[in-house]
Simulated assay, not measured.
Amino acid sequence: MSPTHRPGGPPLRLGTRRSLMATTQSQAVADALTERTGAAVELVGVTTYGDVTTTHLAQLGGTGVFVSALRDKLLADEIDFAVHSLKDLPTAAPEGLALAAVPARDDHRDALCARGGADLTALPPGARVGTGAPRRVAQLAAIRPDLAYVPIRGNADTRLGKVASGELDAVVLAHAGLRRIGRLAEVTEVLDDDRMLPAPGQGALAVECRADRPDLVELLGALDDPATRRAVTAERTVLAVLEAGCSAPVGAYASESGGRLDLRAAVIAVDGTDRVRMEMSADVGSAAELGRALAERMLERGADALMGGKPR
């Protein structure tokens, strides 16, 4: 291990988006790394294109808009490592960078936050539900086609504020993010997998650094959770084989049981009227192969047509 990474050496520079949620999850990673290795860490705020654009993320394809600036800082050696929400990462492997760790996953599910404590069934017809994700709109529309789904942007506080002000009747957000910023009290219903499959990688974090720093890759590896890495590998392989961006109406979730990896995935028409939903299982050592096999079966069933044809 180089002197840079010994206890008492210069702190490692952890690049993070500047939002409360991003800095909170990055600080948790920094604290865990210090606890496990003794390495000092300092946070470096980075503004990404996704933070400043006024264009709706679904129109941008979503993929990479929160990631590229952090990766540029890594390659320029202005930061030592970066923490991303794993669901924001493009599926293509970045040249020159390594996914050094995937820490243990938080809750993968989506959560409804509605005025008056309402759950999804109690919302009145025509209620305005805010969400920026076609995946969520598609699955919600399949359950409640009588609701009005409103595209929204902004951080969790901004979105929750639209409910408190009466502008919206409810919003749907990631349960993990709400926990990280201490807003679970505003959750009125946690949406189970049978109704709402999460985005591939939702609830998990990704820790990246330069691939040409093997000492740092090894150090950050202390944070890796093999079971989480296997699960998200299967989920993200589905996304890659479907050639769908992170804003496409694709949900996937994998979990382990008895030495097997169980994977469920769905592609849903944006209006919720049609879907291809399938599941498969394989040995835990075959995560990527499982994701590929399931995605190929979904394409045989017409999944690409539900996405409007392959976007790339």
Results as ranks from 00 to 15, higher is better:
Val163Phe: 06
Glu35Cys: 14
Ala122Gln: 11
Thr34Leu: 10
Gly62Met: 03
Asp88Lys: 15
Arg36Asp: 15
Gln59Tyr: 08
Ala39Ser: 15
Pro103His: 11
Val83Lys: 00
Ala114His: 06
Thr54Glu: 09
Arg115Met: 12
Pro103Gly: 01
Ala39Phe: 02
Leu160Trp: 08
Phe66Cys: 09
Ala39Cys: 03
Asp88Tyr: 03
Gly161Asn: 02
Leu147Thr: 04
Pro125His: 15
Cys113Met: 11
Thr53Lys: 07
Phe66Thr: 12
Ala156Thr: 14
Ala138Gln: 13
Thr131Cys: 14
Gly38Pro: 00
Ala40His: 02
Val163His: 02
Arg153Pro: 07
Ala122Asn: 04
Val52Glu: 05
Leu97Met: 15
Leu74Gln: 06
Ala138Pro: 07
Asp119Cys: 08
Gly61Glu: 10
Gly62Pro: 05
Val102Trp: 01
Gly116Arg: 13
Leu43His: 00
Ile79Lys: 11
Leu86Tyr: 04
Gly96Ile: 04
Ala138His: 04
Ala156Gln: 14
Asp110Arg: 12
Leu147Asp: 15
Pro151Gly: 04
Gly45Asp: 09
Ile143Lys: 11
Ala111Pro: 05
Ala122Arg: 04
Ser68Phe: 11
Tyr49Arg: 09
Ala40Cys: 04
Val52Phe: 09
Leu89Pro: 00
Thr53Met: 09
Leu89Ala: 03
Thr55Ser: 12
Ala141Ile: 06
Gly96Cys: 02
Thr37His: 01
Ala127Asp: 10
Thr63Pro: 02
Ala98Trp: 12
Ala40Met: 10
